[in-house]
């Protein structure tokens, strides 16, 4: 793989072909915030908090750093007025769901996001999909998945699979930036233990 030199925040950074902007930045020790990214998982591009400004062939664009592949002569700005405003609003939208989430609070401080700007939502989940994707891609168990679409989208454990797999795993718990995942699991557990058709692994 050939080496490509790109510029991030005024610094020349050496990257390999096929790398994303985020990976190139990380190797150079430059921080770009992420919420749905995980090194063991396929890039997802859903939270958009890693949005950066790029300049290439005379055009300026906003792209997701976790997905955009590096290319020759690329100029990246990880902070700008536009980028900061986007991150601030994204955080405010997510804080309506999970005002207490530490990860969000730290970023909120950095970007001046107001956790009370929008009316609070009933679900804590910010749908980063870390649990869903970790369970599918790393554990290959598919015990938790997405349901519904649009603003109705949710995560949901599959009781049939959860009753077999989750008790002894729970590797997704620490990935969750909010309390939503554990809440969803507790609910599923209640469903499993109240239903004669499921048997928790731990009880056996």
């Amino acid at each position: 793989m050939s080496e490509i030199i790109i510029q991030i925040d005024g610094r020349d950074v050496a990257a390999r072909e096929g790398m994303t902007i985020l990976e190139a930045a990380q190797t150079a020790g430059i921080t770009i915030p992420t919420l749905c990214h995980h090194e063991k998982l396929e890039p997802y591009g859903a939270c958009r908090i890693c949005t950066v400004e790029i300049e290439n062939r005379g055009r300026t664009r906003l792209v997701a750093a976790c997905l955009y592949p590096v290319e020759k002569d690329l100029v990246v700005r990880t902070r700008s007025e536009k980028v900061d405003r986007i991150r601030k609003v994204i955080l405010e939208l997510l804080l309506a769901h999970a005002p207490e989430a530490t990860e969000l609070q730290v970023l909120a401080k950095e970007y001046g996001a107001d956790k009370d700007r929008f009316e609070k939502e009933s679900s804590f989940c910010i749908l980063c999909g870390l649990c869903v994707r970790y369970c599918a891609e790393v554990k290959k168990k598919h015990a938790v998945g997405f349901v519904d679409r649009g603003t109705g989208r949710e995560i949901s454990f599959i009781p049939e699979i959860a009753s077999r797999e989750c008790w002894n795993c729970k590797e997704c718990f620490p990935l969750c930036p909010t309390e939503a995942l554990q809440a969803a699991y507790v609910l599923t557990e209640a469903l499993i233990s109240s239903s004669p058709s499921f048997k928790l692994e731990a009880e056996e």
Partner: peptide
């Protein structure tokens, strides 16, 4: 849905995702 998942060898979570998506 369970039967479809088993016979097509598609995880039930994916079957449910499609069944609730539309």
């Amino acid at each position: 849905l369970e039967k479809v998942s088993e016979k097509l060898e598609v995880p039930l979570s994916r079957v449910l995702r499609i069944a609730t998506f539309y």
